[in-house]
Amino acid sequence: MNRIDELFLRKQKSVLSVYFTAGYPELTDTALIISGLEQAGADLIEIGFPFSDPVADGPVIQASSHQALINGMNLDILFDQLRKIKETSRIPKIMMGYFNTVYQFKVDRFINHCVECGIDGVIIPDLPPELYEKDYRLLFESAGIHFICLVAPQTSPDRAKYVASLSRGFIYLLTSSSTTGNNYSPGINLPHPLIPSPALRSARGRGVMPALIGFGIHDQETFEMACRHANGAIIGTGFIRHLSANLSRQGEEQLSKYSRQQQINTLCENFVNQIRG
């Protein structure tokens, strides 16, 4: 069974999914961050593969993607890194990135690599459901890789139903139409954008499909707010900020791999504890 489905069978509340950009801050941090988040008690990990022109992202993820590319990250390297931890890492994993990088890698080859490397789902924000359905749905579904679709507050109820019918694993509900990283200041925008709009409600109307809320979730308060309306939430920018603030680029103090893992473990633990309160 796909591990995302396993997760939601086991746990329907307060599911925490954390996004990070592969190759940031350092090229070789990928496995260390995955392990750190897994130990810290995250439920799901979204591994962002960087693109030069991330139009759906705000400045923080833009900067992490840019640095990851400078560090030399690409899909070959990333899949190698993931293959190495396939046996040891059990947490469900999602790959998230822009369509052009997948398209150049070739979609079927990308899917095969996902299967080989223990990936459970894929999010490609700029591959619309219609195009996915027409050209790629069969490939994903026959490989058992979940394609996860987004629903925005402006998505019409009919469309939301359609999108939800294609989505596998869960539905990604956006708090607002926004690029990533626009924080909601409690009391002003919250809880308003998180009150399920008609579109969001009908997207989930089938009852069976879990939903996670993302974009702008960054602390305990916003996480709890999201958890009241869905099965949990996704945090990206907030985690990247936390990484940038607490984890140096290696520079002068070349840490051993062991002590960098320690550092990352502590940082992930602090982060997850902060969010879960």
Binding site: P128, S177, S178
Partner: peptide
């Protein structure tokens, strides 16, 4: 051609 856009731009 086509329209490769994120859901936020669909409306």
């Amino acid at each position: 051609g086509g329209a490769y856009i994120p859901e936020m731009l669909v409306p």
